[in-house]
Design a binder for these strands. Structure first.
Lengths: 336, 336
DNA sequence: GAAATGACGGGAAACGTTTCCCTTAAAGTC
DNA sequence: GACTTTAAGGGAAACGTTTCCCGTCATTTC
């Protein structure tokens, strides 16, 4: 069942059918009704491949996600899809393995599928400006900050100020009297990752309060409970006098909390703990965990909005910074 | 840069370029090398739309997921994608909103994109056999059991035996001396959902041990911590003598645990609790939660295997039942 | 030495759309 | 009344592939 069949059955030309299903051009109401009736009756759905081929552009948006296991992204993904679908476009969600170059992956996809636009979510970004320029379609980096030597007019982004928010969390702990604050995040070898930036905020807060930075308080781990658990155990074995833990994600925080609790330490009695992201699980952990809560859904929505503004040419590349909030649930306490 | 350009630059015909990039037909090594050099040099990637149009079939697999927020599915999604990519195919992940008919959605996608195959994951299934027959491509239901009146030769599935596993969990609690066992799951109005089947297993265990079924011990909730939390609070306010909770998902179990703990009850001191799925968070909860652990990744892998066997015609529709394991972590204790 | 075979590769049709350009007829415009 | 304009819709080219069918040439086969 193709457009030719519909045309024949409706007694009109192919072009007219096309005009009807795409709502373009001028078609009389009577003809339109006739065609639509046939379309409905035969449950006709236009062949997307043919359409995209002809238009040399598909209406598909690709979402490249690194770290899909982190629940924080799950809600964002849902929102991105909702927003994209709202605009009549299908969303191609592509999970990018750790270590895979997402721009290359996107490039391939774009060429192969004539994508409309791309949203990158999660992961780390140290791609060169040249690399960015190779992407021939609009794209938005969500949750991703690039290295500073990339011309901001080359890309769009929706982010939080990692340094500032991390500074906020650390300062909060310091204000409660903590000095030996453990920091857990992922530090890949590339520069300017989320982990690195949050480390900068952590260090900034320490320095500002005259606390010496102690590298042995910093742990490298994946954004997962198991990894946070292991890293915390390791750190605790070396340093006995830790009074607070700042984890760069709630998933890590949960692992860290488990490590502390299973060693018989109480939260926040013995050790205070604060996470990052604002996933549901952190609230339902026992004790509920304090966190720097990111407006993930809003960020997802904004990403799609910016992307479509770019696609329709309504605006140029844009950089939006969202504010996170410090959510206190009682897993941090004042000491001394 | 299209196949014609590559042909021109390589000094060969279009057909030959096609043969080279698809590894079909007979091409001399020297010609192949010549063409490949040009392909590499210009970073040529064939236009998927044109290819799919011509072949009237794309190599894309669609994964229709309901309940993407449940971390249990996250790892399964990753595995599905890995397995599909391993076979050289892209995966289109489509999140299906609650209440949306996933078969219709898939049907649309299949027609529009000439899909290769579809995997359905999560959600509930009470589609008619006729509906299933409408899907013109191979498909596999993962994590989904259909109503019994559908001819098994019409579809493939990868499931666990919900009734049996639920029976296992309930029996375990009963064997520990529990009588007032609360059961939490989602009960949509449709028949034969995951929640309904697990309820059957729960009831079966009760009956077998001579315990009267008490509907006021059963709570209806979404598969999320917040919903589990609310449902548990509600139940506890009505029934004071609950000694155990069996949640149909770990996410619910976490919410339930939080409800118990925040009311000052201890786990497993006052109330024992067991979940379902085997997500990482359940292990890192404090206390670590017992659960019926499903082999999600294996199931994901099996789904893709079955799907590709169907696609290549290597085998007929197949139904695989995986075994879950009861993981004891100490959140259930013997009473009396 | 003629015929058959097989390796290799080219030309062109076809996949199902969109869209440009054209025709027709009715309605305005002066 | 002759002209232009406009609504409506049809024909056909083009998008970039794959693949069928065919031709050429070298090698066997008898």
């Amino acid at each position: 069942m193709n457009i030719k069949d519909i045309a024949k059955l409706s007694g009109v030309g192919i072009a007219t059918v096309s005009r009807v299903i795409n709502n373009t051009g001028i078609v009389s109401d009577i003809t339109r009704a006739k065609v639509m009736a046939v379309v409905k009756e035969h449950n006709y759905i236009p062949n997307g491949n043919a359409r995209n081929l002809k238009k040399t552009q598909s209406n598909t948006i690709a979402l490249m996600v690194k770290g899909i296991s982190n629940p924080f992204f799950a809600d964002m993904i849902k929102e991105v899809e909702r927003q994209v679908n709202l605009r009549g476009c299908p969303l191609l969600i592509q999970h990018v393995e750790d270590g895979v170059d997402e721009i290359n992956a996107a490039l391939h996809l774009v060429k192969e599928k004539n994508l409309y636009g791309v949203i990158f979510m999660g992961g780390t970004y140290d791609h060169s400006e040249e690399k960015f320029r190779q992407l021939p379609v609009p794209f938005v980096l969500t949750t991703i900050t690039t290295t500073k030597d990339v011309d901001p007019s080359v890309f769009s982004s929706v982010v939080i100020d990692d340094i500032q928010e991390s500074y906020k969390a650390t300062s909060y702990l310091i204000s409660l009297g903590h000095r030996n604050i453990c920091f857990l995040a992922r530090f890949p070898l590339v520069q300017n990752t989320t982990g690195n930036r949050r480390l900068l905020g952590y260090i900034k807060a320490l320095e500002e309060h005259g606390i010496a930075y102690d590298a042995s308080l910093v742990g490298d781990c994946e954004y997962s409970p198991s990894s946070g658990f292991t890293a915390t155990k390791r750190l605790l074995n070396k340093k006995k006098d830790i009074t607070a833990v700042f984890a760069a994600s709630d998933t890590i925080a949960i692992g860290a909390a488990k490590a502390l609790l299973s060693m018989g330490l109480s939260i926040p009695g013995d050790v205070s703990i604060i996470g990052f992201d604002g996933i549901e699980m952190a609230e339902y952990y026992h004790p509920s965990l304090d966190t720097i809560s990111q407006p993930g859904v809003d960020m997802a929505k904004a990403s799609v909005e910016i992307l479509f503004d770019l696609i329709t040419g309504q605006s140029d590349n844009k950089h939006t910074v969202f504010e996170s909030v410090l959510v206190k649930r009682g897993s941090c306490r004042k000491i001394n």
